[in-house]
């Protein structure tokens, strides 16, 4: 199995796929910003935003389930916010005994926790949709068009290109280690510290290979005229549909925010 099978892009020709990557990037950013700026307790507004996500998912035909599954990645982090349930002052709902003392669960604490979850889940769905409907190279030129520092975007481009090559190398090294380790129960031999150091040696080898590869790549670039600058073709101009969709969705998000903050 190739690692690139995990690329989150989901090929398609839906209207969402065809929307200009710059517009998609901006709208995703706006969406997440709106979620962040909405006050707590605005369940109605959160609901409308979720509706927006579901609608876009349906339009994109990447699959509701797929988006939800990928969005679950961030759920474990909710642990970090659980403490808000006890730590926020407010009307006490329940008191639970804890380590000899008691903890009071407050109404505002529960509201805060749920609001954080709502914002977080909305945001990650939007990010998943962006990645699922936009090939990464398009995102790259979208970023460039949005004036991110060109060298940084170029580095991201190399990272993306060689991520899969090096991840494959890393996987082969792991398989080679597996093939030679005699512990079938997966415990591995030696002490933990020794295993960690062996893993370190593998990382060292991978580093040397990567470094030498970067030298060859640099030569391949020179051979084709590289002079230290970053050059790219100019991106195509926005189509009328891109403008309309961008303005429309942007406007809806603005209204939601206005409604929520009033």
């Amino acid at each position: 199995m190739h690692i690139h099978a995990l690329d989150s892009y989901c090929p398609g020709t839906s209207p969402v796929h065809r929307l200009d990557p710059r517009v998609k990037l901006l709208l995703t950013g706006l969406f997440i910003l709106t979620a962040a700026l909405l006050p707590e307790r605005e369940w109605g507004a959160f609901g409308v935003m979720e509706g927006l996500v579901l609608l876009t998912t349906l339009l994109s035909r990447v699959g509701l389930l797929r988006v939800q599954r990928r969005s679950a990645v961030a759920l474990p982090f909710a642990l970090a916010a659980v403490t808000a349930v006890f730590a926020t002052p407010g009307r006490v709902l329940w008191t639970v005994p804890f380590l000899g003392g008691t903890l009071s669960i407050t109404e505002s604490g529960v509201v805060r926790f749920l609001s954080i979850l709502a914002r977080s889940y909305l945001s990650i769905q939007a990010a998943v949709l962006l990645a699922a409907t936009t090939p990464f190279p398009d995102l790259l030129w979208g970023m460039r068009a949005l004036r991110l520092p060109r060298p940084l975007v170029a580095i991201v481009g190399f990272l993306y290109r060689y991520l899969f090559v090096l991840a494959d190398e890393a996987r082969r090294m792991l398989q080679a280690r597996e093939a030679r380790s005699a512990a079938p129960d997966g415990r591995g031999g030696g002490t933990v510290a020794w295993r960690a150091r062996v893993t370190g040696s593998m990382a060292g080898i991978l580093f040397l290979r990567s470094y030498e590869r970067s030298e060859r790549i640099y030569m391949a670039m020179l051979a084709r005229g590289y002079d230290g600058t970053v050059r790219t073709l100019s991106p195509p101009s926005l189509r009328p549909t891109d403008w309309i969709v961008g303005a429309l969705v942007g406007g809806v998000l603005g209204l939601i925010l206005l409604w929520g903050r009033m």
Binding site: I155, L159, T199, Y211
Partner: peptide
């Protein structure tokens, strides 16, 4: 760029 990919790939190297 390549070394960033290296860091990414090195994060896959795990030990029990």
């Amino acid at each position: 760029g390549v070394l960033a990919a290296f860091i990414f790939a090195a994060q896959m190297l795990n030990f029990t």
